[in-house]
């Protein structure tokens, strides 16, 4: 299993150069069964990443471009009267795919946003009194553009933590970008092949709880969240939901590393992605400040028995 995941990482790394860490985090998020928020400027490879993720797992993929006039029905689907059968039949929208890229999520109206967030939370869609199950696994990758905020509806703080992780891809480093530029044009969209079956992914998700979290690790997580609650450096503290998310993600990270128990490094690896958007509501508030999750990590000793 581990080799397969390694393969997946290396495959995607061929598409997005020099971003192994971010790719691994995205995989972690997928295995942990959470949703991913990518906050970055256009042209950084958000779409490529999500497409690649869907492909290597052999999952169905759809992309929804969010605009202010996008209505919930455009995304969820509609009931259309079938004159032959004399009944309404449900036409699923683009959301009924296993991997959904919700591009520029903050451009949609709050109504559409909340419809998406609800579907993410519930793993199902309710329409005209009927409930439609979403496919499993169901993985939403939302993207947000931190600049050009005019005419956007930033996601409400209270709903930001529906996303398990938030990552930023950032610019590639010199060498990676150089390699990319040197690639022949055709190879730019090098075909990917599925490495892990969706069934295997589901199995991974089910075995997540078997990754052993010792008391020392749980204490470490508790110390981290408690520190965020007590210290005045953090405007928003980490909630119990956040500590649960942290444990879940760390387990998933350990699983990808093929370890059946957690060590502090697992927590440290996922903490910035899991905690940053919960500690600070929007990027716009402090665009220049150092990362709060880094600050948090540096204050807490993982060993203290």
């Amino acid at each position: 299993m581990q080799t397969q995941i390694q393969q997946a990482v290396s495959q995607i790394s061929h598409v997005i150069l020099g971003k192994e860490q971010e790719i691994k985090l995205a995989l972690t998020c997928l295995v942990a069964g959470g949703h991913l928020l990518i906050e970055d400027l256009p042209g950084m490879g958000k779409t490529t990443l999500s497409n690649a993720l869907a492909t290597v797992f052999g999952l169905g993929f759809s992309r929804i471009q969010f605009t202010s006039d996008l209505l919930p029905a455009d995304m969820l689907g509609v009931n259309i009267f079938d004159s032959q059968r004399q009944a309404f039949s449900f036409h699923p929208g683009p959301l009924f795919q296993q991997v959904v890229l919700a591009d520029e999520i903050n451009r949609a109206s709050p109504k559409t946003q909340s419809a998406l967030l609800e579907a993410m939370e519930e793993h199902q869609v309710s329409l005209d009194g009927e409930t439609h199950e979403l496919p499993s696994p169901f993985f939403v990758i939302g993207t947000q553009n931190p600049q050009h905020q005019a005419g956007t509806y930033p996601l409400p703080e209270s709903q930001l933590d529906r996303f398990l992780m938030r990552i930023q891809l950032g610019y590639p480093n010199w060498q990676a970008e150089k390699d990319m530029l040197k690639q022949p044009r055709q190879k730019d969209v090098r075909p990917l092949s599925p490495v892990i079956s969706p069934a295997a992914l589901l199995e991974l998700q089910q075995h997540l709880d078997e990754v052993h979290a010792s008391d020392s690790i749980i204490d470490y997580i508790l110390r981290l969240v408690t520190f965020s609650r007590e210290s005045e450096h953090f405007p928003n503290a980490l909630s119990p939901r956040a500590s649960k998310a942290l444990l879940q993600s760390a387990r998933s990270w350990a699983m990808i590393d093929d370890r059946d128990y957690l060590i502090p490094e697992d927590v440290q690896a996922v903490l910035p992605a899991v905690a940053e958007h919960r500690l600070r509501s929007t990027l716009t508030d402090h665009p220049t400040q150092t990362s709060l999750s880094q600050l948090l990590l540096e204050q807490v000793d993982p060993l203290a028995a």
């Binding site: 605009t67 202010s68 451009r107």
Partner: peptide, 8 residues
């Protein structure tokens, strides 16, 4: 004139 992105 309506600009895309303006609140509905």
């Amino acid at each position: 004139e309506y600009q895309p992105g303006q609140p509905l």
